[in-house]
């Protein structure tokens, strides 16, 4: 089963690179591994026939947000790993907590209501542009407009925050 195999490979690699994001010493390496993760997740989207979201994921996440991260890292010149070392106890307890968390999540979802057999026969092309466009610009037009206002607000906020204040001369 090729499709299933591709899914497993993409999933495994994305978990691996996500781990590398967390555990690589160098922030720039983290960014690059995160980009790899996004690509793998986009691959999973394509496997799920959600092409539009896959490309949007690449354009927005990998192409814009991560460039921003990389840009900030380069501007701040954080070349050396300046981060203080996390104490071993914190490390161990975090890993333990995370393990328990994922166990609880899986246990909770294991017996949940997901219908297991012959029912769902929705639109096969739900992830295609035509469908999403219809939804976005008819059913969800108001949230769409509001999100653009959110964008402008965040843009103004970012400019205001990052702008260097002029020294007050008295």
């Amino acid at each position: 089963m090729t499709a299933e195999l591709i899914n497993w490979i993409l999933g495994g690699l994305s978990i691996g690179s996500a781990l590398m994001v967390v555990f690589s010493k160098h922030p720039i390496r983290s960014v690059l591994y995160l980009i790899v993760t996004f690509f793998l997740v986009s691959g999973l989207y394509i496997m799920m026939n959600a092409q539009f979201l896959a490309i949007v994921n690449i354009i927005v996440y990998a192409g814009a947000i991560m460039v921003l991260f990389l840009f900030v890292l380069m501007l701040l010149n954080l070349n050396k790993a300046t981060e203080p070392k996390t104490p071993l106890l914190v490390m161990l307890s975090s890993v333990g907590a995370a393990g328990i968390f994922v166990l609880v999540l899986i246990a909770a979802l294991k017996d949940s209501f997901i219908q297991k057999s012959g029912q769902v026969a929705g639109n096969l092309n739900a992830g295609m542009v035509e469908n999403l466009g219809e939804l976005l610009f008819k059913k969800y037009i108001v949230p769409f407009e509001i999100s653009s206002i959110l964008f402008i607000a965040s843009m103004v906020g970012a400019v205001l925050l990052a702008k260097r204040e002029k020294p007050i001369i008295d």
Binding site: I15, A18, L19, V21, V22, F23, T86, V90, M91, S94, V95, A97, A98, G99, F101, V102, L105
Partner: peptide, 9 residues
């Protein structure tokens, strides 16, 4: 969980 772990660590 990996993301959450990163926030903790």
């Amino acid at each position: 969980t990996i993301g959450a772990l990163g926030v903790l660590v």
